[in-house]
Nucleic acid binder design. Structure first.
Length: 485
RNA sequence: CGGGGUGUGGCGCAGUCUGGCAGCGCGCAUGCUUUGGGAGCAUGAGGUCGCGGGUUCGAAUCCCGCCGCCCCGACCA
């Protein structure tokens, strides 16, 4: 085994980002490949990270008035095909059940690629009056989309997600709901996963099939590529009309309600890996880390072991003395392995803090505290550490966010000409704010020629008139171009 | 679907060109010694060499067919 220190046997991030990503996901045991093409097995450590973000998002969803529900996995073909743009967009990706019970089915069943169609059909009897609105529902489930190329967490044939579906009496209210959904995603991404996001509107060519318009949050990975992290759609009256949902409004006129839908997926586990990770493996934000502090006991003789164990017990008791301390997720690694082995093991898994407690520390009533993100090492008295740990975890969380934000900002560039965009994409890569006229033809030309897409029209980009970098026509504002996953 | 690569104990690979006992490293089990950056030694378990056919006294190796997976593209959360 190589002894130059720290985790080895992972492809270096700078050499081959994709190879690095695969190594980390597999070796940190977040997930594994499965017998089914494009499908993944989420292992306990990866699932714990998902559960963490899931729990936080569920709190936001409930706090904004939504209720969890469940709808079936199977969508009858006739329902999926009611909304014309929707069927056209999703048909190539749908997996169909054609046989069941030993015979061919009269009507094929789609395995849901998303649930707009079956929900719209199902709720039409629930909505009779404006008093039945808004209807605010959320589903935690799995969906299947037959993608051509898959990648662990980022794009799998089956994935886990949350899909919210809402119906409103007015367009204004539905539009507010789209913003509410997107804000839930911003909060979970930034405050829980320490991933800074850019909120914006998708161009028409990138919007959800069947929606009037789509908002998204966009994030930058450490290879400077973009990842769409969550989407919120204004469905308008499209699905309601297709399914025949009508309500009697207070003016005694029958109307179609306005719908929204928004989704957030297991992809965010991959995003967490790709935003914070380094050559030694995962770097997890404390909020989402299954283990926040790992204690590695060090000893030779039995009496040393006993003394170390006693010191650790006292530390844990002191930590549990406050509510914040009690909430800290601590693991003591008593396995019969060498300390070095354990250091590497937990670094690969991104545990924010490691405490080394050995005979020398016991004698000084202290622990060596090592911070995963920068490997800084400091001797801290045990009593002080028990009192400070919650605050240190909070600071660590903020540090990761600040680091990611700084990285994104230093890799975001304003360009005015198409040539500058091309040079930038081929050079450093990153996000490019550039003037665009709004014409889909110019958008497509950039995509065809550079592989970059308009990630979104950011809400916070200032109105800044200019000339479209492709055709030279008037441009109202800059939009965000990047290569994306 | 187009281009490239690859299938050999759990993982990573050698062996294939030139047919002749299925090997190496890691991991795993047991024991002893170890333990402050992936410990050492000893003993041991674990394989229909991707699948099907063919050639041959004999096939991981040669021939034919099929399948899986990975990477790059088109598609996408």
């Amino acid at each position: 085994m190589p002894k130059e220190g720290f985790v080895t046997s992972i492809t270096r991030q700078s050499e081959d980002f994709s190879g690095w990503y695969n190594d980390v996901v597999l070796k940190a045991q977040l997930a594994d490949y499965s017998p089914v093409r494009g499908c993944m097995i989420i292992r306990p450590y990866g699932y714990a990270i998902w559960e963490s973000m899931q729990g936080e998002l569920d709190r936001h969803i409930k706090a904004t008035g939504h209720e969890n529900v469940y709808f079936p996995l199977f969508v009858p073909r006739s329902l999926l095909e009611k909304e014309a743009e929707h069927v056209e967009g999703f048909n190539p990706q749908v997996a169909w059940v054609t046989h069941a019970g030993g015979k061919a089915l009269d009507e094929w069943l789609a395995i849901r690629p998303t649930s707009e169609a079956i929900i719209a059909d199902s709720v039409k009897d629930w909505i009779q009056s404006y008093r039945d609105l808004p209807l605010l529902m959320n589903l935690w489930n799995n969906v299947v989309r037959w993608e051509m190329r898959t990648r662990l967490f980022l794009r799998t044939t089956e994935f886990l997600w949350q899909e919210a579906h809402t119906f409103h009496a007015t367009q204004e209210e539905a539009a507010e709901e789209v913003a509410t959904g997107l804000e839930c995603y911003r909060a979970v991404s930034e405050d829980w996963l320490a991933i800074p996001v850019i909120k914006g509107r998708k161009t028409d060519s990138e919007k959800f099939p069947g929606a009037d318009w789509t908002w998204s949050i966009e994030t930058m990975m450490r290879d400077r590529k973009a990842l769409q992290a969550g989407t919120s759609h204004m469905l308008g009256q499209n699905f309601a009309r297709a399914a025949g949902i009508e309500f009697l409004d207070r003016d005694n006129v029958r109307k179609n309600p306005f719908g929204t839908s928004w989704g957030y997926t297991t992809r965010m586990v991959g995003a967490t890996v790709m935003v914070h990770g380094d050559d030694s493996g995962l770097v997890l934000p404390p909020n989402a880390a299954p283990v926040q502090v790992v204690i590695v006991p060090i000893f030779r003789k039995d009496e040393e072991r006993a003394a170390v164990a006693e010191a650790i017990d006292r530390f844990q008791a002191a930590l549990a003395g406050t509510p914040e301390g009690k909430a800290v997720r601590v693991k003591v690694d008593w396995r019969d392995e060498s300390p070095g082995f354990k250091y590497n093991h937990w670094e690969l898994r991104g545990v924010p803090f490691r405490m080394e407690v050995g005979p020398r520390d016991v004698a000084a009533n202290q622990a060596m505290l090592v911070k995963r993100v920068d490997r800084s090492k400091e001797a801290v008295p045990l009593d002080r550490l028990a009192a400070e740990l919650p605050a240190r975890l909070k600071a660590y969380q903020a540090e990761l966010f600040g680091r990611a934000l700084e990285f994104r900002e230093s890799n975001t560039f304003h360009v005015d000409t198409y040539q500058q965009l091309k040079d930038g994409l081929d050079g450093t890569g990153g996000f490019f704010m550039a003037p665009w006229c709004g014409d889909a033809k110019c958008e497509k030309q950039v995509n065809d020629e550079t592989g970059a897409t308009i990630r979104c029209i950011p809400f916070d980009s200032p109105d800044e008139k200019g000339k479209c970098m492709v055709c030279g026509r008037e441009s109202e504002r800059r939009v965000l171009f990047a290569r994306a996953y």
